[in-house]
Structure formats: structure tokens, C-alpha cells
Simulated assay, not measured.
Amino acid sequence: MTAAQLPLAMVGAGETARVARVRGDSDLCQHLASLGFVEGAEVKVVSRAAGDVIVNVKGARLALNRTMAGRVAVTL
């Protein structure tokens, strides 16, 4: 049984999730991968507002807008 995936934009503040996949063209996927959004990476949501999120990933704190956060599928 596989865990249900949801967009990173829907993860609540204080929750930790794992990246399942990144949707988008190759340039976008490469950009997000260079930031640490690779399959299996642990992502902690620090705060969120209207779909925009601030996360900790691979020791860095990053902000993603709703569109970018919606392209990162995670499992809780």
C-alpha cells in the first residue's frame, strides 16, 4: 500500500513530509532538485499563508509560492 500524496501547499505548519515527486518541465524539476526537493527528502513546513509556504529542506530555509508548492507532491 502506498501513502497518499498531496501538494506541499496543503501541508500544515509544523508538519514534516517527504518529497514523493516533482511535477513540471525539466528546467523546473532541475531547479527544485538543486534546492533540495528530491524524492525522499524530508521537508518541514515552518509557516504557510494562502498556499505560500516557508519550509526547511536539507538544512536550508526556503519560501515557495503557491504555484511552486503545488508542483511538489509529498507524503506525510
Score class of each variant (00 low, 15 high):
3 A>R: 12
5 Q>H: 02
9 A>T: 08
9 A>P: 07
9 A>C: 12
12 G>V: 04
14 G>S: 11
15 E>H: 12
15 E>T: 12
16 T>M: 07
17 A>T: 13
17 A>M: 09
18 R>M: 12
18 R>D: 10
18 R>Q: 15
20 A>V: 02
21 R>P: 03
22 V>H: 07
23 R>E: 14
24 G>T: 06
24 G>F: 09
27 D>F: 05
27 D>S: 12
27 D>N: 13
28 L>V: 10
29 C>P: 00
31 H>F: 10
32 L>C: 10
32 L>W: 02
35 L>H: 02
37 F>S: 01
38 V>Q: 07
39 E>H: 02
39 E>V: 11
41 A>T: 04
42 E>W: 00
43 V>M: 07
43 V>Y: 04
45 V>F: 07
46 V>I: 15
46 V>G: 03
48 R>V: 01
49 A>Y: 07
49 A>E: 11
50 A>I: 00
52 D>E: 13
52 D>G: 02
55 V>C: 08
56 N>Y: 01
56 N>V: 14
57 V>D: 08
57 V>Y: 08
58 K>L: 07
58 K>Y: 00
59 G>L: 04
59 G>I: 04
60 A>L: 12
61 R>Q: 15
62 L>M: 12
62 L>P: 01
63 A>C: 06
64 L>C: 05
65 N>S: 09
66 R>Q: 14
66 R>L: 05
70 G>M: 05
70 G>Q: 04
73 A>W: 11
75 T>R: 09
75 T>S: 13
75 T>F: 05
75 T>Y: 04
76 L>M: 11
76 L>I: 04
